[in-house]
Design a protein around this nucleic acid. Structure first.
Lengths: 338, 338
DNA sequence: CGGCACTGTCGAAGCGCTTCGACGACCGTG
DNA sequence: CACGGTCGTCGAAGCGCTTCGACAGTGCCG
């Protein structure tokens, strides 16, 4: 493995000159630069990451703290991860993968030992214990999510409250007045994952503003959970004409159930869902949906981290505007039925 | 950020002594050790990873090269990743996440710049271009998969050929004689992902040995693909009584299709599938299946990497034995129907 | 009781890079 | 023509750790 000294010798310059060719931090004549680059190419020189980190106190590595549970939402998590890795590479950074399970200790380990320049966390809880730990680190961090007290920490996410408003607005504009929310599983609420709460409060707010009759219900996973949830909604809100579904895994059983009980989508029940685009399009009925823009969020998180590292200004709370795509699962209700 | 010198001063010893306390490579008196540890705890000292890597030529980081495509098999990939990260942490290593997209260049980048001690790759193709590149690296690598020429590189995977044999054996033992294989999508075959081929040849082999009438078919994603595939199988093998399904995403539409056409599982058609356990159990009919032991494979891959790093002997090809779990989607055929 | 093998600790070198200050060469300016 | 300012390059220090050789002290053997 050749070192910078080998390169310097081969090019007939000093090691520092090679370093400056590499970093561009000082002017180097075109001629010298060419000789150095030739030597680098010929020897196949790659700077030693550890040495570099030691000398420059920069690792060019980002930590990505992901929930590696094997349950729901795996595809979404994967999309975030993909976006983060891709964006990081575009900024010449690599990604160290940590699990949420390691908790605070994991963050401190990689931060204190200077393995990473910044951290990106997903799956934040409302009063996440990791937040105070993050504040103590010298490395900046970016959250994908919006915990309760996030002062001084950059947050990026879809604006779930706006998404709920948009979903209800869309249904209301089509004449729906009685609308049920099929929410995430109780486990998600219990974990206080913030997007669930934010969506719910947006929903309730919009419901009041638009003077709708709505009812909201968490939904246990599995066909049985969906059956119970739907039964509850029907019982509490007879004549419901539309459902907002904020629960990917419930979608399929829900559609099965509706079909089995002879309720057609959208003729008898309209549906607007919030989920990744490909989930919405892969259902037996393609669904009008609000996309979870995992790619954009992940990319933005990385970009925010880069800005922080460069000492540039950042907006500390960036909630991406939702965008609803019509796919025909929402039907106009004629005034007589309202 | 305190350094080893700060600790040394606080404990009244030399830096090298602190280092030896940390590494245990030389005997240190209990008394001194206690003093040093107290100082470490008090100052909150964490060794600088870069400095360590530079001095010791060890990074305690593993590269995990994952296919970050957002299509099928995402849950399986996630399970592998989870297992790898967890196992790596158990051996005091961290995981750097690379995408398959970076190809050979990515491997060389992290290896040449000494960011990692070893590499673990998933989703290998039959004549994977990365294999020759891996051979040139000074770091050892472990493959999850079994490409054509893997001499000198450790490989870990499920024994897909044996899995196919086991699936067919199970069906044959229940009296089935006419059996169709619903294979992965043509895209998977085209990519020459090795597990598809291995499963297929095991299937054909066992079919011949057991003197079965079988037909095999790739299966395009989506309901339409499944319909075509099933139609082809029915046409080529009238009176088929059982299906082996090696295609997770086809399972759901396949079951829907069978139900819609009045063929009950297992009364009219028996099914054995190979997929992650949770997929098999989350179907409307719980399916007799052969698990893809992502957790075991991932853990074994890490363990193999550790052995290689320690200079211990390893088996260069480890194919895990499949295990079939009965869940009632395979029915005994009475001799009269055979 | 001299010599030897440990045991426990230290000092210094060195890992490969970045960065700062220095300095000669060269330019334009007054 | 002398002077200040750039430009291009070099040398050396230093980042924080590991590791090797050295060495004082101790216990044991012959």
């Amino acid at each position: 493995m050749p070192t910078i000294n080998d390169v310097a010798r081969a090019a007939g310059v000093s090691p520092s000159t090679v370093s400056y060719v590499l970093s561009g931090r000082r002017p180097i004549s075109a001629e010298t630069r060419a000789r150095v680059q030739a030597a680098i190419a010929e020897l196949g020189f790659h700077p030693h990451a550890g040495a570099r980190a030691l000398a420059s106190s920069k690792t060019n590595v980002l930590a990505l703290v992901a929930p590696l549970r094997v349950d729901v939402n795996v595809p979404v998590i994967m999309q975030f991860a993909t976006a983060v890795v891709t964006a990081a590479r575009a900024h010449n950074h690599d990604v160290l993968l940590l699990t949420k399970d390691e908790g605070t200790a994991g963050l401190e380990r990689v931060a204190h030992s200077t393995m990473v320049d910044a951290l990106i966390l997903m799956d934040l809880e409302r009063d996440d214990l990791r937040i105070p730990a993050l504040r103590r680190l010298k490395q900046p961090s970016v959250l994908i999510g919006l915990p309760a007290d996030h002062t001084g920490i950059a947050c990026v996410d879809l604006d779930f409250a706006a998404a709920a408003r948009e979903a209800l607005g869309h249904l209301a504009a089509h004449g729906h007045r009685r609308i049920g929310l099929v929410g995430p599983s109780p486990a998600v609420y219990k974990r206080q994952t913030t997007y669930a709460d934010r969506f719910l409060s947006g929903f309730l707010e919009a419901s009041a503003e638009l003077e709708l009759r709505t009812v909201t219900h968490p939904c246990e996973p599995g066909a049985a959970g969906v059956r119970d949830c739907l039964a509850d909604i029907d019982a509490q809100l007879p004549g419901v004409t539309a459902l907002v579904v904020h629960n990917e895994e419930a979608l399929r059983p829900l559609l099965d159930l509706l079909r089995a009980s002879g309720r057609r989508v959208p003729e008898d029940v309209s549906i607007v869902t919030i989920c990744p685009r490909d989930v919405a399009t892969s259902m037996p009925v393609t669904l009008t949906s609000i996309d979870i823009p995992a790619h954009d969020v992940g990319t933005l998180a990385v970009e925010t981290a880069m800005r922080l590292l460069d000492g540039r200004r950042v907006e500390y709370t960036r909630l991406l505007a939702p965008s609803l795509v019509e796919r025909g699962s929402c039907r106009e209700i004629s005034p007589s039925h309202r």
